[in-house]
Simulated assay, not measured.
Amino acid sequence: MRWINRVLVVALGICLLSLICGTRQIEASPINYEKMSDKEIRGSSHDLGVVFSIVETDMIRMNLRFGDIVLIVEKGISSGGGFYLQASSINNGGIVKLTDKDNQVIQKLMSEMSAYGDNNNLSKSFLSILNLIVSWPNTMPVYVSISNSGINTLTGEYKQQSHSRLTPLSDYKPLNLCNAFGKTLDLFWPVQVSGTTVATLDQSGIIGQDGCFGRCGPGCSSYSTATFNNVYSYACARHDACVGYQNSILGVTNTVWPDCDYLFPATIPDFIIGVLGTSYNGTQYNCSTIGS
């Protein structure tokens, strides 16, 4: 009986400590990391049904699977750069568009990784790529290939279109807006008809306001001040201005104006380069210390 009395005393002591100090719940991570290092991250989120990996060797290779979708990314890290992204169906291999439900899964994964992941450069690259994917217009198939010769994407009809870009990705200097917070900028963009510019439209916006205007990413999220998601650029502001014009002038909602889709590829280098730090080729870029 003596050992029973000792157990009761210990149990009573724990209860008293809980009453005095309060009970602290230790929250378990929703992500199961199989490996976490500067060169390799592998894991899964059971509640989201997501399996992911990102590995850095001669380039960064990322693989993300959930539902019927597999996302493949290759990002060059040597001179000349380069970037490739494709979302395809696991069942038939065809390139797909992402639905709102798909984007919700990716956004939730970003939140979980921001809360429970590491803060190394590979993790930041992973999150910046996810930020690009979740920002992708739902009318565009998720495919892009960037090389020194230009940017190639697919239209809503799954026809390839090219966007000229003379500057190699490794030498790309974004028109950043880190020092423009609170300032009103006039943004201009072409109206395209069958690939031909027929007019030029403009819309003004206050950088950093009106729903994080000018930020490369969807809306204002709870992790908007994180390094990977605090990039403001002229290209992203111009796309925001186009969408704002569509909503306020044309009265079109819940869909993306084709001209805004055409502007989106120009924002892609800003997403994937902005994560590299507060300086790129001597130009302040990431705005994590400004306006946050």
Rank of each mutant, 00 (worst) to 15 (best):
G150Y: 11
P141C: 02
S29P: 08
A180C: 11
G156S: 14
T23A: 14
V7H: 12
G208W: 07
I20M: 02
T167M: 09
T139Y: 13
L175H: 15
D259S: 03
N179T: 12
I129C: 01
L250F: 05
D261L: 01
A180L: 10
Y262E: 10
A180Q: 15
G81C: 07
L154Y: 08
P141V: 00
R238L: 11
I95Q: 03
V275M: 01
D202Y: 09
N148Y: 08
R215D: 02
G277I: 00
S204R: 04
I26T: 10
K173L: 12
F52Q: 00
V198F: 00
E40L: 10
N176D: 13
S194I: 00
L12Q: 05
D38Q: 03
R65N: 04
V105A: 06
R6F: 12
I69T: 10
V134A: 11
D102P: 01
P168E: 00
I60E: 04
M140R: 04
C15Q: 09
E157F: 10
I268H: 07
T227R: 11
G43T: 02
S37Y: 05
T197A: 15
T289M: 13
T255P: 00
S18C: 14
L85R: 06
A266D: 13
E40I: 04
D100M: 01
I14S: 10
C260R: 07
D47F: 09
R238G: 10
P218M: 07
N63Y: 06
T278R: 08
D47C: 07
I146D: 06
I77T: 15
C236L: 11
N179F: 09
I4D: 06
G150H: 12
G13A: 15
G277V: 00
C21K: 09
M59N: 12
S44N: 12
T139G: 10
D259P: 04
D259F: 03
R165C: 10
S222W: 09
D47H: 13
P137W: 03
A115G: 10
S123T: 14
S37A: 04
L19M: 05
S279H: 08
Y262N: 12
W136H: 04
T289P: 04
N148C: 08
Y172R: 04
L16K: 03
D259W: 07
Q284S: 12
Y280E: 03
M36D: 14
L98G: 02
S288M: 11
N138F: 05
M1S: 13
F228D: 01
V55Q: 06
D47N: 11
N63F: 06
G182K: 03
Y232E: 01
D240H: 09
T153D: 14
G81N: 11
E40R: 02
G251K: 00
N103S: 02
T255R: 08
G117E: 07
V9G: 10
S128N: 03
L71I: 08
P265T: 08
Q104R: 06
Y223G: 02
V231P: 00
G67N: 01
L169M: 15
P30D: 00
G43A: 05
S162G: 14
